[in-house]
Nucleic acid binder design. Structure first.
Lengths: 118, 118
DNA sequence: CAGTATCCCGAAGGATACTG
DNA sequence: CAGTATCCTTCGGGATACTG
């Protein structure tokens, strides 16, 4: 099996312009336990590393750093380092990152309509 | 840490009606490597187990059965068994399942706009 | 045909300690 | 403050064999 992405799904027989390909591409770059919530939290505002960490509470240092790095490498978020002591790092959505907000919105709408506690 | 769902995210401090809660609920019930593609493939049409299996090619028997069972338990798909020999089982989207199609559509739109092969 | 039942493995993520 | 490094555990998913 030819893995062409980290989700291990073989797309070799699927045309890049097909719907299934786009779907799998999206699922691939947004995979991981925390990415959607991170992106939702970033929303329109820039946030510091420590703010994200505090908001997510249960995430470990290593995981947060890894998820942020993956999002950065995918061109979803921008990492801005301020050369200060102590260091200050801010994260914000790129234009591509803002493109995932509609996805998140539809997920929220669905979740709020169908979760069992409503 | 109190796990209240299989993704392990602790929602105990988040109100059920909040956006973050809805988002996590959705992420939770749609987690897994194949669920989005399965639901996209089902679309508006009923499909047989063997059709889904053939379409996904690389999926294992065990995984397909498991993903379908989870989707059924979440009320996303309907499983209809025809008492024949050999057996025939058809899967289709419930109303709730049709509610995830808008999510999939936005994911497709995003993926087709931003994947590197366009 | 549409599953079940096992076994197995890799990768994701957590915990902890350390650092510029 | 914002990481890095290391070790460890969990678990989703694959492979294989078997069945009503």
């Amino acid at each position: 099996m030819t893995k062409i992405c980290k989700d291990g799904i073989d797309r070799s027989l699927i045309k890049p312009e097909s719907e299934a390909y786009g779907l799998m591409y999206t699922q691939d770059i947004l995979s991981g336990k925390w990415k959607y919530i991170i992106l939702w939290y970033l929303g329109e505002e820039t946030k510091r590393y420590s703010e994200i960490k505090k908001f997510l509470m249960n995430i470990s240092q290593g995981s947060l750093t890894k998820q942020l790095k993956e999002l950065e490498e995918a061109g979803i978020i921008l990492r801005k380092v301020y050369p200060e002591v102590p260091p200050k790092v801010e994260y914000s959505l790129t234009n591509k990152g803002k493109g995932v907000l509609p996805i998140i919105k539809t997920m929220i709408d669905f979740g709020n309509e169908y979760n069992e506690y409503k």
